[in-house]
Computed example of a mutant assay.
Amino acid sequence: MNANNIEPIETTIIESTESIVVVEISSQTDEMVETEMAGETDEVKRETKALIEALKRRAQTEARLAGTLTRETYLKAVRQAREAIEGRRLIERDHRLEYAWVVMQDEAEKNWYLLMKEVVDFSLRLQKATKAAWEAFNAPRSQL
């Protein structure tokens, strides 16, 4: 058996004006061509066997390449998805930080207004107390 798990039973040498190619013919191909083309010449059978084997090898190569491309495409898609998720996490963190900053600003602003309200209220009470003390201090002694 060879690397493609096809048992070669015949080796065919194909000669053309351009090159000589040695093609191993599997038992399946040999049986099929001999059965289906029983009335043809040996040359036609030989060329047909070589064509079928070439097509098989080409199909196997294409399948391997497609498998490699599919794996590469899958890995690329997985990496992009991971990077997108990690990017979203960073964006989510940024959004959370921005939100936290906005909340802190709102709380500081509320606290500032509450503090200012307390200061104003205290100031009004102090003014009333001062006025009452002044009035009591300056009241005629007969009213005491």
Rank of each mutant, 00 (worst) to 15 (best):
A3G: 02
A3H: 06
N5H: 13
E7H: 09
P8K: 02
E10V: 09
T12C: 08
I13F: 05
I13P: 00
S16K: 04
S16R: 07
E18L: 07
S19E: 15
S19Y: 10
I20C: 12
I20P: 00
V21E: 13
E24V: 03
T29Q: 01
T29A: 01
D30I: 04
E31D: 14
V33R: 00
V33Y: 00
E36T: 09
G39T: 07
E40K: 04
T41P: 00
T41V: 07
V44I: 15
K45S: 07
E47D: 14
E47N: 13
T48W: 02
K49H: 11
A50R: 00
A50P: 02
A54Q: 13
L55D: 11
R57I: 10
A59W: 04
Q60W: 12
A66R: 08
G67A: 05
T68L: 12
L69G: 09
T73L: 04
A77S: 14
V78T: 02
Q80L: 06
A81K: 07
A84Q: 05
A84L: 09
A84K: 06
I85Q: 07
E86F: 12
E86Q: 11
G87D: 10
G87R: 05
R88M: 11
L90G: 11
L90Q: 14
I91Y: 13
E92F: 02
R93N: 09
D94A: 13
D94G: 13
A100R: 08
A100E: 11
Q105M: 15
Q105R: 13
D106Y: 03
E107T: 03
K110P: 01
Y113H: 10
Y113W: 07
L114H: 07
L115V: 09
V120F: 01
V120W: 02
S123T: 11
L124I: 08
R125N: 13
Q127H: 13
K128I: 04
K128C: 08
A132Y: 05
A133F: 06
W134G: 02
F137D: 15
F137E: 15
N138M: 09
A139K: 04
R141N: 14
Q143M: 14
L144R: 10
